[in-house]
Amino acid sequence: MNNDIRTQIRSRMTLKETDELLEIWQNNDRAEWSDDAFEAIKEILKERSVDIPEQNAPIYEHKEEKEQKDYDFSNEELRIVDNENPPDFYDPFDVLLTTKRIDWMAKVMIVFTILYNIINFRTSLEMVRPYFFGNQNSALVYVFTALIIALNAALGIIVIYFPLKALAHILRILMEMEFRSRKGIEPNPLVE
């Protein structure tokens, strides 16, 4: 069984570039990587005829664990981040952080789109005016311009906000799917 796990760890490590392996080796992050992973890296580096450098002092605790408190992660999200069997190809904390940033950015883009359209009111007004031959300074010109700006802002928000929100949700769902596919994780859904 242990040999099986070592083989799997080694298989995953062989996919990584030599530079990445050297970085992991030197960082010596024991909180993120197991002893078996370091053994595998050492063997792979030897096979690739790479000089094995000195390791830094081992890290047994992630500074990210302290940072996690600063973010508004749910219990289920923290359960994935703190799981004893972390994934090899991505960092769950990075995923959660990225989804939070995407959510935040989606909101920022709403504010920006509205602001941008308001700032460009005069430009839009100059574009609308020629279509009102009779009275170019009537209130109707301003109302029509405001409607066009509102429509433009709404379209801009739809085009940016929804794809970003969708991406954030897709990332969360993919992470939950990955978490549930791990060995020893009960098949209960994380999201009711």
Binding site: P87, T98, I170, M177, S181
Partner: peptide, 13 residues
């Protein structure tokens, strides 16, 4: 970055 993470998660799964 989201695409990169998403692909990694699909492979991991």
């Amino acid at each position: 970055k989201g695409i990169s993470l998403g692909i990694n998660m699909i492979v991991e799964t």
